[in-house]
Amino acid sequence: QETLTAVHAFPGTLIYTQSFLQFVDKVNKAGEGVVQIEVRGGPEAIGMFQQPDAVRDGIVDMVYTPGSFYGGALPEKDALVASNLTAVEARENGGIALIDEIHQAKMGVKYLGWFDSGVSYNLWMKDEPKLDANGNLDVSGIKLRGNAVYNAFFTEYLGAQVIDLPTTEVYAGLERGVVDATGWTQIGLIDLKWNEFLNYRVEPSFFSTDLGVIVNLEKWNSLSDEAKTILQDVAIEHEKASVEALRVKRDEDFAALEAGGMKVVELQGEARANYLAAAREKTWGRMKGLMAESPMGDGQYDTLIGLFYNAELDK
């Protein structure tokens, strides 16, 4: 029996961590006598942003983390961020196989699976969003909280006045009016209690979560074929199961928020299309720029986008 040690980027109580722990349970059940995963903890065991390096260096065998936490080493993660597909389609069309290949080449890690996909981001606001004459979102005068994932979009397209605040300070920031709007995934606002201050959700949602399981390549290669098969099969199964589970959770969250008075403001027509296009293209732009700087170059840029983005779906 072989054992892999694992850590997860987020605290144990967060929904995404729960999803990873379910995956671990499934592996440990299917892999009895063959392969087991031993979870060592979350950010209290290895710092959130140090986990990608830790798995690269073999300190720990497996990490569940957003690709954005190692975007410096692997700018291609932005293909997932700007994706409008879920892992199910990206697995089928070979997108995840390509991302895995890039992970192996650039970081020496195996990309085992893209979990909790299909969840996207909304802009959440305290006051009713203003729309200009053409129906575009007008964020002038709004204090928008940003971070590394969405700053390219917020500042370059929306021209927003972005304030970088750590997640732990956002509650106090909203309470005192230091910020009055923030991006966040469709799920999880209630857990953070930010809905006490936020009253509007702006649609359409944009981006996608980019949470994945990466495994130290040396460790992966040392596993028996049977162990590899179990891990990979369970991961593919969980890619699918997690999409479905989180869809249900999203609908529940939205319903609960709306029952609590959250109002939805939806951009229409061209304004909507421009908003979505900007979110995507500003992110792609960043990815292409960083890919070009790296020794592997940006040769796979178009292929990646073709595999993770389907223009038909946005029509």
Partner: peptide
């Protein structure tokens, strides 16, 4: 090395 990385992060 991981120790130093963690210290940097903290």
């Amino acid at each position: 090395g991981a120790l130093l990385n963690n210290g940097l992060g903290s």
